[in-house]
Amino acid sequence: MRSMSSYLLSVKNLRVSYNNNVEVLKGVSLNVEKGEKVVIIGPSGSGKSTLLKAIDGLVKIKEGEIFFDGVKVTNDNIIKVRSEIGFVFQNYTLFPHFTLLKNVMFPLQEVKKLSREESEKIASEALESVGLLEKAQSYPFEVSGGQRQRAAIARALALNPKLLLLDEPTSALDPEFVGEVLEILEEIARKGITMIVVTHEIDFAEDVATNVVFIDNGEIIEIGPPSEVLVSPRSERLKKFLSRIIRKKLIYQK
């Protein structure tokens, strides 16, 4: 089924519940155009990760539809859809038993069906672009958390995805490694890739986002450009949330 819309991603009235009783997403709708950078913010437990996972078919949808690149996502095409969407998790995105190089090569060989030589060439370039070529033969847990996330980003990009999902890519990092990861994200954002990032890095959101989405309790409360949502929030809930984040940040900087 093709839709006429120009959206790369269209989420329509999405409802998800894990244990059949409590709804974690209560009718979420979201459109993302090609090239857009959407930043999702919201309190812990509000359903941000669930939304990203639902887009990638990693959680069961109770109600609603998702269109990706004009096609309705179903069980039958989910494998193909996933191969066109990159996903970087907070942690454990990389396979711990593969070297960084193998981590990047592996999906090129097994999903994109490229030859070993070609995969290695692309993987090396991808690692080089995030400054990790000299760590190619290291295993994920032999490098820093920041390097791990950079490698995870490199792996996602090497597959040339149409959409990149990042779920709190810097939240698990020691503070000294946050900057290097955000820098790389800013760099790839400039290159025009479509991305949806869940993050509490408000500065990053201001610099990069075309749209900011505030989710609370399974619902989208506010959505709009950062100059509106972050600068003049309308709802009490968002005001509270932002002031909490900013306070935390000020305390940390001292």
Binding site: K53, L58, R82, F87, F89, Y92, T93, V111
Partner: peptide, 8 residues
């Protein structure tokens, strides 16, 4: 989930 998300 990471393995699934790659399209494996």
């Amino acid at each position: 989930e990471s393995a699934q998300s790659l399209g494996l």
